[in-house]
Design a protein around this nucleic acid. Sequence first.
DNA 1: AGTTTCTACTACGTCGCGTAGTTACCAGCC
DNA 2: GGCTGGTAACTACGCGACGTAGTAGAAACT
Lengths: 132, 132
Amino acid sequence: MPHSTSSPRLGDLERVVMEQLWEHAGAEGTTVREVHEALAGGRDIAYTTVMTVLDRLAKKDLVSRERDGRAWRYRAAASREALTARTMRMTLDDMDVTDRRAALLHFLDGASTAEIDDLKAALAEVEARHTD
Amino acid sequence: MPHSTSSPRLGDLERVVMEQLWEHAGAEGTTVREVHEALAGGRDIAYTTVMTVLDRLAKKDLVSRERDGRAWRYRAAASREALTARTMRMTLDDMDVTDRRAALLHFLDGASTAEIDDLKAALAEVEARHTD
DNA sequence: AGTTTCTACTACGTCGCGTAGTTACCAGCC
DNA sequence: GGCTGGTAACTACGCGACGTAGTAGAAACT
């Protein structure tokens, strides 16, 4: 058995497809055809390939789908930001870090000032949320 | 081509082996034999399997090795915390997040109070470092 | 010299993912 | 009502990563 982690790892094509879902993110969802057409502009890819990928993403619960007549409409189950956060969290949890502060410190070491500001803003926001 | 990310993803056994290196982390390093003996207590595993894994980890630059007579002594190239941080960073970078603040906010959503404190401590530490 | 110890190389099975074909269904058109 | 086009469902193949390990050969101990 290769991997125990249930980490939502994305392959390259899976990522590209998710991009599409994120970009055309509306409440309506996106069909295979729409995704395929969007991708077919930039690369040579078969319709069924897109179908397969969307199917796999659905099985991983990274996208949800609802019937629309005969077809399916796919929607990203989580925003790009939420998925990113989830993946980061899983890393932190899976790695079984004892000294979390040290890990976070290392993380900040690689951060730009802008990113640190983003983090402080986010931090302030959760704080505020807890207070009110 | 399956993956573009040069993310240092660990398999299950690779992780277990890294644990050993981290636990017996001294300046001296650890031999294959030592790792094997440590693991052989809990599971049925061949000496050569451990060797192969260590070899692959070395090729991924996750461990370094120095000769010790005929044998090699392996050392984790990065601490568990540093590797964790690096992986988290790669996730954040690879996901091409536009709204980093939102991503970090999501991340904090899943955090315990203790973790938030750890983060604040780490943040204070980088701040201090920049100031002095 | 024979036995042990360690490396180096090769190998095999499984799984994830990129990639796609084939088959079959259903809805509308001529 | 059979043909056509769009969809889905299922199957498949190649490749790389990883768990797993065997074998060959060098080196060292006895």
